[in-house]
Structure formats: C-alpha cells, structure tokens
Design a protein around this nucleic acid. Structure first.
Lengths: 189, 189
DNA sequence: TTGTTTTTTTGACATTTGTCATTTTTTCAG
DNA sequence: CTGAAAAAATGACAAATGTCAAAAAAACAA
C-alpha cells in the first residue's frame, strides 16, 4: 500500500533510495468510518495524508451553523488543511469522511525532518505544492462569477466522479447554491 | 531597488551569498503605464515578477467579452499567472497595470537554473509557493457561499487598500457582483 | 424486513441581484 | 481650463436564487 505513496512522489520527481526507505518507515495507516471527522475546526492540521481509498470533504461552519464544503478528496489525493498545516495554526475547517477511507500519513515534524535531512525533497515538496495550488486556482475559477447552472455544468465536466459519489447537499454547499436550487437544476437535465 | 527583492526572499529563508549575488545580476526592471497589458491571454507567463511600486490586476475574459478580475497585485507582491507559469502553458488570464508600475523580474529558465545550481533555493521556492497558496485559499473562502454585501465587507476588512486604489468596476468583477449592485452597496455605507 | 431517520424533491413565495437606460460625476488629453 | 470620454450612480423592472414547509425517496440500524 505504501508503494502507492512513494510511486506518486517518484512520478513527480525521483526520490533517492534513502529518502524512499525512510519515508516508507514513517508512513502510518488510519481508517475512517463514514461521517467520521478526521480534522476538527480549531485543532492544528499536523498530518499530511494520502488517500488510499474512499472520499473525504473539507468544510467550514459559519456562526449560524451553515456548512460550506471546500473540496472533496479521493483516492490518489493528498489532504491537509492548507493554511493550518503550512502555518501550524488552528484549522478553520473540518475534514471528514464521506465514504469509509484508508489514509497513509506522516506528521508535520516528520516532514520537516525529511526536508532537512534530504534537501532534494524540497524539490518534490515545491512541485506538489505548485500542483495543488494550480488545482485550487482552477476550482476558484470554476465558481467565481458564474451562475448556479454554469457552476454545476463545469463541475460535471471537470469532476464527474465527485458528482456521482458525493451527496447533493455537499455538492450544493461546495457550489455555493442552495440544495433546493441544485435539486431543480438536476431535474432540468 | 533590487535589495527589496533579496530582502523579501531573505526574510522567508536566508539566501547564500552566491545565490544572492547571482539573483541580483539576473533581475531586470520593467516599467508599465496605466492600463498597459503585462501578460496577454494565450501567451506563456514566462517571467516571475516582483512589484516594486504600483498596482496590477489579473483577469479573464469570457466568450461574451465579460471580464472577471482574479486578483490585485501591489508593491511587495510576486506576480505570475499561476497555472501558466508553473505548467509553462498558455495563460488563461491577462495581467495589466491599474496604476503605473515598476517591476523586477527573472525568467522561468533563470529560475529553473537557480533551483538547479542552488538546491537550497528550492526551500525558498517551496515556502513562497506555500505562502501564495494560502492567500489564494483565503480569497476563495472570502467569496464562496457569501452574499454580495458579506463579500464586500470582508474585502474591506482584509484589504482596505485595494478598495481605495482599484476602480469600482474591477472590485465588482473581483467580487463576482454587478457594478451597479456594488455601487448601491457602497452608498448604503 | 421494518420502522426510523436522513436526504432529496417539490411548490409557493420572498429576497437578492442583474439588466438596461439614463444621469451624474470623474478623468484625462489637448 | 475645457470638452470628450470613461466611470460611477441611480431608477425601474426582470431574472435568478433562497427560504420555508411539506411530501417523497433513500439510507440505515435493529
């Protein structure tokens, strides 16, 4: 299972033998049940996790209790609460399992240690961050200045599997539209 | 002037003497007049630029000719078209000067060369990308699932200087609301 | 399976925001 | 400074979307 992670990283930038072996030792497994919270608002996101199987979402809750889904993470994705992990500060968002999940993770400190011990790893780190930054910007572009229908159509086009797997209420809160509106859009197509 | 750039990078992570000197040699100056386009849609963003003075914006134009402002870059900011620069692909967005600007830049290839020649520079690169990734996520959170008034109030709170300096039409297109709606919001306060 | 709970859909209506046309204000070149 | 052009504000109305309540459907636990 751990080869999936090293394979993923190797495909971005080749890892040295030592780094690969040490990373292999550090990776720990965690399993989540459906609806289980993996990261709670207010706690520091101190693990960087790789999704082996399942589906998760990150979301925020405003002062009226309304949830806003930030994004969905599925097998093959890396998951952290971005600001919390990088700045080592309390998270503004929750991360929870939508489907039963298996994850592999290392801690923030282990990652820092790898960056120090294997300077080449910074190249990998930089490229992974770049990749996720681009994806984040693409999501932003898919929401900004668009009507409900356009947003839905775009998500359908770019991430059809998410539409299949995530409950309507989470899709709606991701798209920034009411679940009733999304329900009507769906019946229109 | 170039010390502003090396100072900025040093504050993120100390640069070696050699790196600092070589970077210093590579930095080139460019001046933009108001409304001058710095990056055009369809061209590759092949410079990474540091804003010494002035204000710019990035924006996209949809097939009906409607502009959507992505963000504003002012003195002290680094500016690239994120996806285009990192993936070395044609840009989906324009970058243009809102105020007369002075920028310092190095090219994509020069940056790649620095990453190779000075591996420590990858640490800086990673941290800078992390920083801008966090800022991008914060902007997303400030727009998603919010009403026009909340978006405006939040931008006012987090970036009052942008509201002062950018024309209403650009602020409106950034916030994803009509300029007439924004005008009414403003008069309300 | 069965009853309970959660999620989704739907209808009626309210609210927000956009559109268009026009006026007012501001900017800017000469 | 002055006139032309661009930007911003405003009014009237239309369109999009949200809200609330209820019904239907689906998911889930015992």
């Amino acid at each position: 299972m751990k080869e999936i992670v090293t394979g993923f990283l190797n495909s971005i930038h080749p890892l040295s033998q030592g780094l690969q072996q040490e990373l292999y030792q550090l990776l720990k497994e965690v399993n989540l049940k459906k609806k289980q919270v993996y990261l709670r608002e207010g706690t520091v996101s101190d693990k960087i996790s790789f999704v082996i199987s399942g589906l998760l979402r990150s979301y925020t809750v405003d002062n009226e209790g309304k949830e806003t889904t930030c994004w969905f993470m599925k097998e093959g994705d890396v998951t952290i609460s971005v600001k919390s992990f990088f700045e080592h500060s309390p998270s503004a968002e929750y991360i929870e399992a939508i489907e039963p999940c298996t994850l592999l993770y290392i801690t923030y400190y282990e990652l820092e240690m790898l960056y120090k011990k294997y300077p080449e790893f910074n190249v990998v780190g930089r490229l992974v961050v770049q990749k996720y930054y681009v994806l984040s910007e693409e999501r932003l572009a898919g929401i900004r200045n668009k009507k409900a229908e356009e947003r839905y159509a775009l998500l359908m086009k770019t991430h059809p599997e998410i539409i299949q797997r995530a409950p309507v209420q989470y899709l709606a809160s991701y798209l920034g539209i009411d679940k009733a509106t999304l329900s009507r859009l769906k019946s229109k197509w």
